[in-house]
Design a protein around this nucleic acid. Structure first.
Lengths: 264, 264
DNA sequence: ATTATCAGATTTGTCTGACAATATCTTGAC
DNA sequence: GTCAAGATATTGTCAGACAAATCTGATAAT
């Protein structure tokens, strides 16, 4: 039901023979994304972005040209172009006339972008990724929380407190994870430094990745909840130094969970 | 000259009369960007993005529709769409059929993106921006440098050293600033944590903004150079704690320069 | 009176086909 | 061998059409 679409441009001739199976698979993958509600260009950006981050097209190489993509996925060139523009906006590639779209060196990628981080997180070695994020959190979160302890407004405090209690009363793990994320992001917002807020994607990514690991021990959840409440209390009482330490304890706990997952 | 832009919700007919002059001005501005080498969609993304960050279209409001942009700037709808897709990729807006493109809340913006940061930096209050970035650097750079001191490879060390010496021998301020940026970014790379690298844009932004302030005192440059060399030495000798302190001294010096500029 | 359903209108989404601009590569002249 | 001019491939830009989604308001049913 999908193969009949291929009718359009059998192209010149060469590409038509060999990659038939591949093309089928590509289409299937794209359809798979599309039915998940996204538009064509979004699904394309997702697919191509994932391939780049995954390493299918290493930095410095040029991607297939627009017409090729358009044939491969049986979509219009406009859709391909819009997808590529999105990836350009994330610094994954640059494109110039006649030369095509070249993958940028990794250290230019906008790794702290939600999508890019998502593609990056789905890389083969998740544990390594998690450890990198955790190291980053060790740098950011204690200081951000200390700032929050001194600068938070009452509204911000209320958000933090609410997220914390909702973590405790959540009845599903998904619900709890959502509140957990909200808790940490609220702290970043309360830090009073706008530049810290975008780093919330890192926390989101960590917790989403961790999602598969936890659930096991009830005691773990209980202890983690205590650690969160400690942090909430430090911010409420405006104790920056204590807040720093409380956050470090929580991160250490998270590290431990990751470590246990790694040794399984 | 900003209040007349507010023609938006004038709705169906009112908007047609008044903004004739504006349209001219808009076109002129766009041409101005275009002759600076960029493509149409890039120039458009720049213009619209800047307007959003500047606050012309506050979060939650709906932008003019695609046809309106296309008329205003006398470009094709495709170009507008590609520009908007770029801004979507930076989380500045979301667009849905029939409802239009809505500006996202500020805390969803990808503030650590190079372009967004650039637009943000050109806001009315540069000093405030600089102070925010500096606070962020205080959090990140000492730790990143400490990590670099323990983990740097020989190649990475060479890069750092080279950038440092080139800072010293630079004959133009622009050259020096470039080497300065390269120095700090090399340290981030050497930290061994990939997530730190994208934060280089912050340093780049700071130094670019500072560009207008310095030059004055030769002694300042000399002292700053010493501070950089201290950092280089700490990394070379693998002294993380000393590196942390050296970076804090440099940041304090930068703060002082900013403070002096502020009081003028 | 409130809710449910449907028709119409508006805006983005997608496709198509054409031509322009640009950079690379090739060919030819010197 | 070097340099210049042209061929060529690829993105950039444009115009116009239709599809899909969703908001609005009107009408009908409970």
């Amino acid at each position: 039901m999908a193969e009949d679409r291929r009718g359009r441009a059998a192209g010149t001739e060469a590409a038509a023979e060999a990659p038939v199976a591949d093309v089928r698979a590509d289409e299937a993958r794209l359809r798979g994304f599309r039915i998940s509600g996204a538009s064509v260009h979004a699904a394309l950006a997702n697919e191509i972005g994932q391939r780049i981050v995954r390493g299918d097209y290493p930095p410095g190489t040029t991607l297939p040209n627009e017409q090729k993509w358009s044939q491969t996925f049986d979509v219009s060139r406009s859709a391909v172009r819009e997808a590529i523009k999105m990836l350009m906006a994330k610094n994954l590639l640059v494109s110039r006339p006649k030369v095509g779209s070249r993958v940028e060196p990794r250290d230019r990628w906008n790794l702290l972008d939600r999508d890019v981080l998502g593609w990056y997180a789905s890389a083969p070695d998740r544990l390594k990724f998690l450890r990198t994020v955790q190291e980053f959190r060790y740098i950011i979160e204690p200081e951000a929380t200390a700032l929050a302890a001194t600068r938070r407004s009452e509204e911000q405090m209320a958000e933090i407190t609410q997220a914390c209690t909702e973590m405790g009363t959540a009845r599903f793990l998904s619900e709890r994870t959502e509140a957990d994320t909200r808790f940490h992001v609220a702290i970043l917002r309360a830090s009073g430094n706008e530049l810290l807020v975008p780093l919330g994607v890192l926390i989101e990514s960590t917790l989403d990745n961790l999602f598969g690991f936890i659930t096991r021990e009830v005691n773990d959840l209980k202890y983690a909840q205590e650690l969160h409440e400690d942090i909430e209390k430090c911010i409420r009482l405006q104790r920056p130094e204590a807040a720093r330490k409380a956050v470090r304890r929580l991160l250490a706990n998270t590290d431990e969970i990751i470590g246990r997952a790694a040794s399984r």
